[in-house]
Structure formats: C-alpha cells, structure tokens
Computed example of a mutant assay.
Amino acid sequence: MARAGLTSERVVAAAADLADTVGFENITIAALARGFGVKDASLYAHVRGLSDLSTRVAVLSGLDLADRISDALAGRAGRDALFAFAHAYRAFAREHPGRYAATQLELGPSALDDHPGLRRNLTGPYALLQGYGLTEPALTDAVRLLRSTFHGFVALELAGGFRHRRDVERSWAAALEALHVALSNWPEEADS
C-alpha cells in the first residue's frame, strides 16, 4: 500500500510543505503519513521520530534561507546589502511561514558540522555589517539588533499584529532606513 519512491528527502520536503500549511509546531507523523497514503510506521524507515523530523525540516529550511540571502547579497555592500538581506529574509518568512518557524529551532553543534552551509546564517550578518566598518563588540551588538528587528517585524506581521492603517510596506521601508542610519552612526562603547 506504500507509495513507491518514499525517501527521507521526500518525507522531509513534505513535512516542510506541511509546516507551511499547518504551522511548524503542528507537524505530526500521523498527518504526514496520511499525506503519503501510508501507515505511520512506514515513515519510521525514513525518520527516527518527530524530533528527528523537526530537526531535518529546520536544516532544510535553514539551508534554503541561507541560499536566498547569499544570492541576494552577491556583489552588494552597505545600504544595498542591508536592504537585500532584509528583503530576502522577509520574503522567505512570508512565503514559507512554517519553514521560517523551523529556522528558529536551536540546532546542536553536530547539525552545523553535518551541514556547514547552515553557518552562513550565522556568518552572513557579520559579513554584511563589516561593510559598515563595525568591529567587536559593536559587531555582535549590531547583529543582535538586525536579528531582533527582522524577526520581530516578521513575527508580528505573520501573526496579523499590524492593524494600524499605516501601510506595512512603508513601515518596513522606514525601519530599514532607520537601521541604515543607526549602523552608519554606531555609538562608541562607553568605558564602564
């Protein structure tokens, strides 16, 4: 009764699609098996369980996000790179909300060792911000500012949190301009 061609890759890809439909936190082995027209037990030949499946969806999603951002950043620096990064990040989250949620899953060091492409999600923002002439510790502070701004905006947007009549696109553009100004004029760290 199992469909021919069921592979680990197909199972993980289907789980990522399911995450975009029902939410990453709502993926179940049973729902995935129903989608393939097989019994739950058939999937255990391809994934060890829900935790393993979630990790694999997070890896797949993280690699996809890293590819999109890398493509967007190619040949860009400064403001242009900041905007390209931000637009690629937001577009991914809006197109794939379940996959985006999966990218927030904390992965262990072995996942980074097994999938070195995931490191681009960690190193990309640092490379982007070096174009602003930032060095440590300001560099890490600025990466945290970017991540919290982008994730916060996207999370609120996906949850329908922007109900004010002001156009969301104009708010996004204003936020990016404000980030560019802040990054261009980063304050010196005061001696404690």
Rank of each mutant, 00 (worst) to 15 (best):
residue 88 A to H: 14
residue 101 A to C: 02
residue 121 N to V: 02
residue 120 R to W: 02
residue 110 S to F: 01
residue 124 G to W: 01
residue 83 F to S: 15
residue 118 L to R: 08
residue 131 G to R: 08
residue 120 R to Y: 07
residue 96 H to G: 01
residue 133 G to P: 09
residue 83 F to I: 14
residue 84 A to T: 08
residue 84 A to K: 04
residue 117 G to P: 01
residue 83 F to C: 12
residue 129 L to W: 11
residue 89 Y to M: 06
residue 106 E to P: 05
residue 82 L to G: 03
residue 75 G to H: 14
residue 101 A to F: 01
residue 99 R to V: 00
residue 77 A to C: 06
residue 87 H to E: 13
residue 125 P to E: 00
residue 105 L to A: 04
residue 91 A to K: 11
residue 133 G to F: 07
residue 91 A to H: 14
residue 97 P to F: 00
residue 130 Q to S: 07
residue 99 R to Q: 10
residue 110 S to H: 09
residue 113 D to M: 06
residue 115 H to N: 13
residue 112 L to F: 11
residue 100 Y to P: 05
residue 125 P to D: 00
residue 87 H to D: 15
residue 80 D to C: 01
residue 88 A to P: 08
residue 84 A to P: 13
residue 79 R to W: 06
residue 123 T to F: 01
residue 102 A to K: 15
residue 115 H to C: 09
residue 111 A to V: 04
residue 97 P to Y: 05
residue 114 D to P: 09
residue 83 F to Q: 06
residue 89 Y to I: 01
residue 101 A to D: 03
residue 83 F to T: 09
residue 78 G to D: 03
residue 133 G to E: 09
residue 91 A to S: 09
residue 96 H to R: 13
residue 104 Q to L: 06
residue 88 A to K: 11
residue 121 N to Y: 01
residue 85 F to K: 07
residue 124 G to V: 04
residue 99 R to Y: 08
residue 132 Y to T: 00
residue 127 A to W: 04
residue 101 A to W: 09
residue 86 A to W: 05
residue 96 H to I: 00
residue 100 Y to I: 03
residue 77 A to G: 15
residue 76 R to I: 14
residue 111 A to G: 01
